[in-house]
């Protein structure tokens, strides 16, 4: 059964009513077609109203939808001959991150992404898409390999965050994330990052130092989950809905702040309604982006990435403040 989201309920109920009426006219000998038509008109308007005015908290729900397409779902639609590579060569294979080589419309590329599970069993295996240090080190190993063979790198970001565990700390979660930020800055190939679900803090950013950063329309990217922010700032996780708005975690908000470059439109109601169509939207922007970046030299790519992040932030000087007062 499909999972319904709270904000979609009016649409679903109206749709049910129309279906019921249609059934009724079929069985009984009455003509309700004008009523049905009216209701369908109302449905279209309702859909427009709800999906055009989607609230940050609704987007959080869509981003967390259990059927939301994952990295591997998009890989199967976007790439040919994906060959998955395992392990960090040091400790283990962290299945919360997948990566490998493939072709994108004939172009050799390296693809890396966080990977959630589709059911409980897979989620346990993949630790709910929350990586340990070895996951980030596997990702870095594959990026260095891509750098050696001049393959563009495409990263899919989809994690609640790096796993907060004892073993993760012992093996250097901080260092693993920091190392990725540092080394991604020096890659000589185009790096394109796409946030497809939740982009949770440093654990997301560790795959996020790219020349271009895109977000699916209903994905989120933030320094902390709305629940976490509510717990810290208001001492109450129940304020998550407010936090989702205040923390500016949606794609339109982040485009405004200059954190991301473009928003990839989603089909009505979210990517899970039609994965193939959603993949086509991603394909369009990937194609355009790769065409643009492949014109740049190695040095230009590094400088482009440097400038991409160098300019993020907002600040003033104390004198400005004084002159305001």
């Amino acid at each position: 059964m499909a999972v319904e989201l709270e904000f979609e309920r009016p649409i679903i109920e109206l749709r049910k009513k129309i279906t019921e009426l249609k059934e009724f006219t079929k069985n009984a000998d009455v003509d309700l077609s004008s009523e049905i038509q009216k209701l369908e008109g109302r449905l279209a308007k309702l859909e427009e109203d709800i999906y055009e005015n989607i609230k940050p908290w609704d987007r959080v729900q869509i981003a967390r939808h259990p059927e939301r397409p994952t990295t591997l779902d998009y890989i199967s639609f976007l790439f040919e001959n994906f060959f998955e590579c395992h392990g960090d060569r040091t400790f283990a294979d962290d299945e919360a991150i997948v990566g490998g080589i493939a072709k994108f419309k004939g172009l050799p590329v390296t693809v890396i992404g966080h990977q959630r599970g589709k059911d409980t069993k897979e989620n346990i295996r993949r630790n709910f898409g929350m990586p340990h240090p070895e996951g980030y080190r596997k990702a870095l190993r594959l990026m260095k390999q891509a750098d050696k063979f001049r393959r563009p790198i495409i990263c899919f970001i989809d994690t609640k965050g790096a796993y907060p565990g004892k073993a993760a700390e012992e093996r250097g979660q901080s260092e693993a994330i920091a190392r990725n930020l540092f080394e991604m800055a020096g890659l000589h190939v185009p790096v394109i990052c796409i946030v497809i679900g939740e982009g949770g803090s440093g654990g997301a950013l560790a795959l996020g130092v790219g020349n271009r950063i895109y977000m699916l329309e209903n994905s989120t990217y933030s320094v902390i989950s709305p629940e976490g922010a509510a717990a810290i700032l208001w001492k109450d996780a129940a304020h998550a809905k407010t936090a989702a708005e205040t923390m500016k975690i949606t794609a339109p908000d982040l485009k405004g702040l200059g954190v991301i470059d473009e928003i990839i439109p989603e089909i009505k109601g979210g990517a899970h309604k039609d994965v193939k169509k959603q993949a086509e939207e991603i394909e369009k922007i990937l194609t355009a982006s790769l065409k643009e970046l492949l014109h740049l030299s190695e040095e230009e790519l590094i400088a482009d990435r440097y400038n991409r992040f160098r300019t993020i932030g907002e600040y003033g000087l104390i004198n400005d403040l004084l002159s305001v007062n």
Binding site: V209, S222, V223, L257, R305, F309, I312
Partner: peptide, 16 residues
Amino acid sequence: MQEGALSLMQMAKTSV
């Protein structure tokens, strides 16, 4: 926290 994703991006900025 009060600077949201902008504060997250400072990690990337300093690292690059």
